[in-house]
Design a protein around this nucleic acid. Sequence first.
DNA 1: GCCGATGTGGCAGAAACTGACAGGTGTGAG
DNA 2: CTCACACCTGTCAGTTTCTGCCACATCGGC
Lengths: 199, 199
Amino acid sequence: MAKGERPTLTERRAEELRAAIARTAMEIFVADGDTSAKVERIAEAAGVSPRTFHRHFPVKEDVVRPLFRATAEAVANALRDVPDTADPVEALVAAWTAAMPGGRISEFDRRFLTLMVTTPEYRLRWQEADAELCEVIAGYLDRRLPAGGHPLHRTLPAYLVVHATRHVFEHWITSGSDEDLDALLRDALRMVLAGAAVR
Amino acid sequence: MAKGERPTLTERRAEELRAAIARTAMEIFVADGDTSAKVERIAEAAGVSPRTFHRHFPVKEDVVRPLFRATAEAVANALRDVPDTADPVEALVAAWTAAMPGGRISEFDRRFLTLMVTTPEYRLRWQEADAELCEVIAGYLDRRLPAGGHPLHRTLPAYLVVHATRHVFEHWITSGSDEDLDALLRDALRMVLAGAAVR
DNA sequence: GCCGATGTGGCAGAAACTGACAGGTGTGAG
DNA sequence: CTCACACCTGTCAGTTTCTGCCACATCGGC
């Protein structure tokens, strides 16, 4: 196959396996209505041995990482294509909605995300994916912030943007998801970016 | 003993035991330079059986909760005594410094907190204590925010204040702690509260 | 077709937890 | 003061999560 690609063939295969196991776990979690399924069951449903499961996911809860990483990458990609002239708030909201298939969240996803929000160990994995997003957003905001100053002036706004988004999203998920998510996000992001000197 | 107190005698005793075990764990972690000590060792050092350890801390990492809960309560208490006329930024910074013994962080604490920041499972426990702080700060900000509006207008500023504080603090800890923490906090809080319509 | 590299499975075992039972301690009623 | 009761603790056995090790299969390059 192609030679110049960054990820090796083997690496990509491992990545696909991890994604498949993650999807299997997600389906089991949603079907059960909780996240208490044992490793043995998830591994068997995914067609691998428990030993292989733990080779790819040292800690059981790591199994959901590929899912969150995928959406974080989708947001990052959407943000990369935004022209510099766009309003930052609109750009960030658009990047978020672009990351959802069809611009909206399915009932299946809603159930899954509810489980993730209410289970601390899994919520942590979501936050870790958010942390990677922080760097991307920091890169985006760089073009719109006054240069120089303390390093925190660069990282803090990105950190706050990500956490404001997370807070709004968790509110939306746990409160029944019958509000206008985009409007809530716009509102929250405006608040954050008003405090930072984003132009 | 006194009768009208809220916590039962037994409950307070259990609380003290938990605090003692937590302190023991902290000392072991700092002495080792990592958090890999086994439950058996921590329990033995604290003079209890592993079974009792798990009775008070269902998950091993929960052992640090009493420590973070204590400082969160200290901040909450400091914030309760602040007059309504005080500048919110100064009040919050003062509450934070009041929570540290002597207004500054000891070398021992710095080493411990570094371990907590760099180990996701323990960092999560710290965040959980922060989450309780969110409610207290939301109560404080209530007096200074325009009434009414969406529930998020009440919870989001508090959430952002807590997370901005956490971001600054983690930067300060991991970057060597040789900067002026109060000044960094002031700067970050001003940014957050400027975005929210805090008066 | 062969060979080295790498991923996988099975097995044994360590470590983190849990349920059940027995023993000790203190508290309050009589 | 004594007894009964509630509660906490320790012991023990068992489950679940996770790891080291080795043998085997598979894949990619020669």
